[in-house]
Simulated scan of single mutants.
Amino acid sequence: MALVSTPLVPIRHRLALLSTHLVVALVALVVIGGATRVMEAGLACPDWPLCYGSFLPGRQMNVQVFLEWFHRLDAFVIGIALVVQLAAAAWWRAQLPRWLLPISGLLLVLVAAQGGLGALTVLQLLPSGVVTAHLLLALTLVAIVSGCSQLLLAPADSSAASAPLWWRVLAAISLAAVMGQCLLGARMSTSWAAQRCLEAGQSCQWLHWHRSFATPAALSVLLLAAVALLAGGWARRQWPLLLLASGLVGAQIALGVLTLRLGLSQPAVTVAHQLIASLLVALLAALLCRRPEAASEQPLPVVVESSSLEPAHG
């Protein structure tokens, strides 16, 4: 049977591209935030929302100030883009899926909350709980926007098929497991538990929980890939993304081990560890919301020529 799909309407296609770019910007936001923490630049700008009382600090600019300033600039650009998305979803709501308008509003609320948490991290001098919530909300935004981009890229007609139930269940479990692992890692890093454990043998329970939970989180992703390859059909055709997810899991484990082997002395390795985590969250959210193209249920018509047939005499 031939696969058929309805072309995306122009505004839907543009919003799909906007969501895709927002995923990249959000991943960059998470990574720059991780670099800011590793470089101990969270208080490089002592005030909020400005930095040293100006939009672009000149005399005070150095690597730490630049990281904190650029982190805020990226968040501001993301907020403007989400305002544009909400306005477009409201103006062209008749041509767009009904779920897009409330989701766009929710994303704007979450970004506002994210800005509030960012302000608290500065004004309350980097409390561990607030910094952890700040990262968790950022990863939640990554997951939601990544899922929205896939739904917007799906066929626009109502006959678009849903992914198999087992696919959605396994993908949701994998995403939840990876998000939980990221939350443990964030709590460990923001309380400097790994450093204290390696140096003085204190607060080692966070490091132990983070290492112990890595195994089920990794196995959940590998199970999704294995079941999809065995199931065949549409699920098996997603093998490039499944292979990428498996590769990211392997890279994440290797970076985690290397980070501890180096005694957390290499900021680049720690930042790369956080980059892989955010990419994995984005990819699993995209897999969760991915939809197969609808297959035509009508058999192809058989065309018979109308030419007359004469009986053969022999």
Rank of each mutant, 00 (worst) to 15 (best):
S54Q: 15
Q205P: 13
P46C: 05
A75C: 08
L110E: 07
L67T: 05
P97F: 06
A44Q: 00
L50D: 04
A138M: 12
L280Y: 05
P292M: 03
T215K: 07
S246M: 06
A133M: 10
A268K: 11
W192R: 15
L288Q: 07
W99C: 03
L244C: 03
L29Q: 11
L309E: 12
C182S: 14
C148H: 11
L125I: 15
L8K: 08
P311S: 08
V178E: 02
A312P: 08
S162C: 10
V27G: 07
G263D: 02
L56M: 11
A285P: 02
L300V: 10
L17S: 14
S296H: 11
P46V: 04
S265C: 05
G42T: 01
L135A: 13
Q124W: 15
E310N: 15
L284G: 00
L107P: 02
L229M: 12
W209C: 10
L100V: 02
L110D: 03
H71E: 10
G116A: 06
I276M: 15
P97R: 01
R196S: 12
E297R: 14
A282V: 03
S146P: 04
L126A: 09
L56P: 09
M1G: 13
L260K: 05
S146R: 06
G42M: 05
G116H: 07
L26A: 05
V145N: 06
